[in-house]
Structures are given as C-alpha cells and as structure tokens.
Amino acid sequence: MHTPRLSRRPRTAALLTALVTCAALTACAGPAPSAAAPQTTASAPASSSPAPTPKHGQPSSTEESAAPTQVTIPSLKISSSLMRLGLNADGTVEVPPAEKGMTAGWYTGGAVPGRPGPAVLIGHNDTRFGRAVFHDLRDIREGAEVLVRAGDGRPLSFTVTGKETVSKNAFPTERVYGATKGSTLRLVTCDGAFDAEGHPVDNLIVYAEPS
C-alpha cells in the first residue's frame, strides 16, 4: 500500500492535500489506506469548519490517553485493536505493516474519534500473508454499526452512511480529510482489480456518522 503525501504545512492545507493509497505490498488484494471513488452510496462529509491540525512527532500525553484502542463491526464480525499511524519520512501516511495485516490503524493526523473532524481508520484487505482485517469491508451496508473504543474506555457508536470505490489516481481527499463540524468516521482499504505489478488499482472508503 502506498500512501498520500502530506506536506508539513499547517493542518488544513496538509489534510486537503493528503492522499492515502494502499502501500505497494505484493499480495495487496485490496488493502488499506485510502483512495477511492465509486459505486455509490458515498456521502460527503458535513459542512466544514477549521480542520484539526495534523499531528507530527510524538503525541502529547493528552493525545496518548485519547487515542482510540479498538474498532468493531458486528455485522461483518470484524474486531481489531488499533495501532497509531503517522507519517513516513517521505511525508506519506503510514499503513499497518504487512505482518500485522489483521490489525487496523488510526491516523493520528486526523481527528480523535468522537471529537469534531474526520477520524480515519486504515486497514489492509489482504497482504502477502493472506486475508487481512478489512477483507470483508466491501460487504458493509448503509445503516451498519461501527463501534470504536475511546482511549478512556468509552464505546463510541457510528452508523454507516455510505461507501465508495475509487481509483487510487482520483482519491477524494477533501471528502475523506476535509473539515467537518461534528465527529465523523472514515474506514479505508484497497479494492478492485490488480495492475501489471499486482497492486490493487482502487480504494474502498466507508463513511460513518455518530449514531
């Protein structure tokens, strides 16, 4: 899975130029982070307001305690702890390592789930080690519940409002990372056919709002 480049500029600009695409993993059958524009039920984020600033470097103690710890999608029987994902040295967004394909991640440059702004969770579809955590995400339906455990242990409930599959070359950055007045959730993975090098050409994005 390769990921979008985030410049070290002020948060709003960084988020709107962020592009998350699946890292180039050899058996990446539709893995993780982001880009996608697709089949439809896509719902754009709520009206905008100042976007939260991307986190660079080590998170503060407050951020540490606020970091979400788990995501569960009952209808798909998906349950995973959440690792923190930041930026690679080249400015691209990190994705979970292939050997941890069954573990999803929370992008720390976005919002904390439950707080204003888009919280982005990234997970692989498949890796060279086989089936991964978001393998069945394409089967999620509008109205499905997504549960995120907050850093303080509180369960946060979100309802899926739409999903879309888009080409990695046309990632809807603003829809995924753009500022929102309230708390929103985006789940991102890879999807679609493979290119000549064996990498998925699309991304699947799931949009959800607080229940």
Rank of each mutant, 00 (worst) to 15 (best):
L25Y: 15
T26S: 15
C28M: 10
G30V: 07
P33A: 15
A35P: 12
A35E: 15
A36P: 11
A36K: 04
A37D: 11
P38C: 13
P38Q: 15
Q39M: 13
Q39N: 13
T40D: 13
S43K: 11
P45G: 15
P45A: 13
P45K: 14
A46Y: 08
A46P: 07
S48T: 10
P50T: 10
A51G: 06
P52L: 09
P52T: 09
T53A: 08
T53M: 06
T53N: 05
K55L: 13
H56Y: 10
H56K: 03
G57C: 06
G57W: 01
S61G: 01
S61E: 07
E63W: 14
E63R: 06
E64L: 07
A66P: 04
P68F: 01
P68D: 01
Q70W: 01
I73V: 14
S75D: 08
L76V: 05
K77D: 05
K77I: 01
K77S: 12
I78Q: 01
I78S: 05
S79E: 08
S80H: 03
S80I: 02
S80C: 04
S81K: 07
L82W: 03
L82V: 06
M83Q: 09
M83P: 00
M83S: 08
R84A: 02
L85W: 06
G86N: 00
N88W: 01
G91S: 10
T92V: 06
T92A: 12
V93E: 09
E94R: 01
E94N: 02
P96G: 13
P96S: 14
P97C: 07
K100W: 11
G101S: 07
M102Q: 14
T103G: 00
G109N: 01
G109D: 00
G109S: 05
G110M: 02
G110S: 14
A111G: 04
G114R: 03
G117R: 02
G117V: 06
P118C: 04
V120F: 04
L121I: 15
L121E: 09
L121R: 04
I122L: 15
I122E: 07
I122H: 03
G123I: 05
D126G: 08
T127D: 12
R128F: 11
G130V: 10
R131C: 07
R131T: 14
R131I: 12
A132G: 08
A132M: 11
V133Y: 11
L137D: 05
R138I: 12
R138E: 13
D139R: 12
D139C: 03
R141D: 08
R141P: 04
R141Y: 03
G143V: 07
V146T: 00
V148K: 02
R149Q: 13
R149S: 09
A150G: 08
A150K: 00
D152R: 00
